[in-house]
Design a protein around this nucleic acid. Structure first.
Lengths: 248, 248
DNA sequence: GCTGCCCATTAGCTTATGTTAAAGCGGTCG
DNA sequence: CGACCGCTTTAACATAAGCTAATGGGCAGC
């Protein structure tokens, strides 16, 4: 039947990712899988999973599809502060806070598992490895957030977009969502603009530049990175922050 | 003698902050205070507490002084990704990751407590409230990081600097480090520029503008906010993300 | 097969911010 | 006391990125 996380089970991406954070025993895997299968849900593109100001009472794991976290200023300026990719977690532990400071919206059709707080806390209490893996998930998401700060603060548009593409590729790779040197990029240029702090027009100009320099091909929502090392150089990409942590 | 956290004990700021996150019982307070007093240390301005790539094996609590987290690109461009203010924590739980993705440097003379991992884990295991408070500390720091992303991505220089000043003021307030409508701002304009993603020259221009508009006085490393509400309006400051969380 | 809509693209112009350089302004060290 | 040093401030100029507007392409619905 469903081998734990090794074949096409619905939660394959989650298991791959967690195993990169902390090697999971069969028992860990089974416990997590149980919790996941109890709360399977779906959302369509544009649907909000969480709106700024909401209270949260569960933890969600993305099984497939893309979402993004975003914040909006009074006058409508929007910033995407992160993408949430298959295998990643929305706000583990965030139920500890009174309300959430940002919104989460599906960019594509999404399948996710909703684990209620009580259930989640049982799982954490009963299983040290899983607790550590979820903690790493939270820490890693912070590390990404910090990298976005330097991306927005100190990289020029060309480097910035190049960096985003490198990061997305490297985040999709461990969950098996890349195919050779290509991956899906199922978001509009407006979304990419809001993620990089650029205007749509300038984002488009920048993408044309990236194309012209032969670093990428972007067509039909598929990103192909012709030469990843070259793209990383152009982006001044530092691999450290994304490292998946085998060792304790 | 030293009343727990209410008088001038060295860890006053820490206790004030933790109490805002989770009300601490006398027992909680005593346990935390013990751990703090075992590992008191100091650092001078410019001293690195952690350098990108280090392994971490302890948790540090800032008792007094300012530090900043920063990352630097190959070519020297530097971005301060956050300040660490009195009462705040450097990287609780970060020992779970293999290496750290950024550096932490003292901006002023700093007094801090260094709690070794093993000790910290004992404390967490023995004391649920403290564990939750440390978790909130981590989550709150993520929320701040997200706000910095929108600050850098979508606010213009004037709003951006105004926002930083509002945030710093609101972070210093609960630990008793503001005096009326003034607080210390013990960093150079170069640091502020690196925190806001601006050039020093433009940061200076922006500060002149803020002065000219009567919103702030900045002199001798002291920031005075003439009208906090007006400054918040100018910054499109949204208070939600910093809320200190009484309620579960 | 036309209409409308969303998204990508391009052009022309405006502006915020960066860059370089120089001067002012305390401190402090010798 | 004078020279240096780190920091702030100002000026003049350069440029990356924003804004507005128009066009084009693909796709869905009528």
């Amino acid at each position: 039947m469903r081998a734990h996380g090794t074949d096409g089970g619905v939660a394959q991406a989650v298991f791959r990712r967690f195993n990169a954070l902390r090697p999971l025993s069969d028992e860990d895997t089974a416990a997590l899988e149980h919790a996941i299968l109890e709360g399977l849900l779906r959302a369509g593109p544009g649907e909000d999973l969480i709106t700024e100001g909401d209270r949260i009472d569960s933890v969600r794991l993305v099984l497939s599809g893309w979402l993004f976290r975003h914040k909006t200023l009074e006058d409508g300026r929007r910033q995407i502060v992160n993408f949430i990719l298959p295998g990643e977690t929305c706000d583990s532990h965030a139920y500890l806070l009174s309300t959430i400071d940002h919104s989460i919206t599906a960019a594509t059709p999404v399948a996710y598992a909703d684990i209620k707080r009580v259930r989640f806390e049982q799982l954490m209490a009963a299983n040290r490895t899983l607790a550590e893996a979820f903690m790493c998930e939270t820490l890693l998401s912070s590390a990404i957030q910090r990298e976005w700060v330097i991306n927005l603060g100190r990289r020029a548009a060309f480097e910035r977009v190049a960096h985003l593409f490198c990061e997305i590729f490297e985040r999709l790779r461990p969950v098996g969502m890349v195919d050779g040197n290509s991956c899906a990029l199922p978001v509009t240029q407006m979304d990419l603009a809001d993620a990089t702090g650029l205007s749509v027009v300038h984002l488009n100009r920048t993408i044309q530049e990236l194309r012209a320099s032969g670093l990428i091909v972007l067509k039909d929502r598929t990103l192909t990175i012709s030469d990843l090392e070259a793209l990383k150089n152009a982006a001044m990409y530092s691999p450290n922050y994304l490292q998946l942590y085998r060792a304790k």
